[in-house]
Design a protein around this nucleic acid. Structure first.
Lengths: 162, 162
DNA sequence: TATTGTTATACTCTATAACTATA
DNA sequence: TATAGTTATAGAGTATAACAATA
């Protein structure tokens, strides 16, 4: 149980103005908390965000080699193996050997995988709504544009959208 | 050496549009990359960002107990000990026993600590300039405001500034 | 008994490097 | 010899829990 303490000690500790004034600090902190939040929600659904990312990329890029999936998402290739193993066990993706180069695997979504992607998409959108709640539609668009610009500036993989 | 491959395979892998369209994804990714970038630059200076955060908070809150520092910055208390140990060894901070409650330590900046804070502040600002380069002053202000609003919405510690 | 700071332990990520099978 | 995928190992980072001193 919380002890009663004088006012001056009970005020909740706040982050120093110097850090609040730093966009970099806000980005890093917000990024971490968003990641934690998303991780938690997904775990409750029995999935990981990484799996969602893979499903999303497969939904767009048709079938793909594992190496390009890993490169696009910034995963380690060894890391991706486990993610794909799990998705395959659940019947959400399919690995086929490339007959032209038998070292390669072609990965593709199954119909069940597409269905699951729709469900997970809803989870993401629901969290996004909750996080961005204090911003109106215009502010959200503006924020998104700024983030995209900044991200593309330091990583060409983000430059995808026109 | 890089092997020559057909055009269709050589295009650099890009992040799926579904993820680029998600503000949450951008926040998480940008946050991680910013953190990594800052971590790296600081390491080259022989410091850690955590040390910088502690110096910054001490510069504003006068002398403080370790627990409130940890709470404000979201550090684990045990984690903070090591950070303070190092800062103390370098003569940047001072730990004194609180005579009213001898369990507590009062932590404060030394003059040398203040000087070092100024130096580290420059490092942060230089990185920030580089990250935000593609945004003009107005867009930077807008981005910062949006981030602050969103952060304060889910964590009261960010609500410090008016 | 509860709390402050400290130390020690365990667990999770991630990064690196070996290994196989194909080329 | 080099590459794609796989597996195993090691390191950093973090979270948890035990500990001593004081209240």
């Amino acid at each position: 149980m919380k002890m009663q303490v004088p006012d001056v000690e009970r005020r909740s500790p706040s982050i120093p103005g110097e850090l609040l004034a730093s966009t970099l600090f806000l980005l890093a902190r917000l990024g971490l908390s968003v990641k934690a939040r998303v991780l938690e929600e997904f775990e409750q659904q029995g999935f990981s965000v990484y799996q969602y990312s893979v499903l999303a990329i497969l939904n767009e890029g048709s079938s793909d080699r594992q190496s390009s999936i890993a490169d696009a998402l910034g995963f380690d290739r060894g890391q991706l193996v486990g993610i794909l193993d799990d998705l395959e066990d659940r019947g959400l993706i399919e690995r086929r050997r490339d007959e032209n180069d038998r070292r390669r695997h072609s990965v593709s979504l199954t119909p069940e995988g597409k269905r699951q992607l729709v469900k997970l998409r809803k989870v993401v959108m629901s969290i996004e709504d909750s996080v961005l709640e204090p911003l109106d539609e215009r502010a959200r668009k503006s924020l998104h544009g700024a983030l995209l610009t900044v991200a593309a500036h330091s990583d060409p993989r983000f430059a995808g959208l026109t």
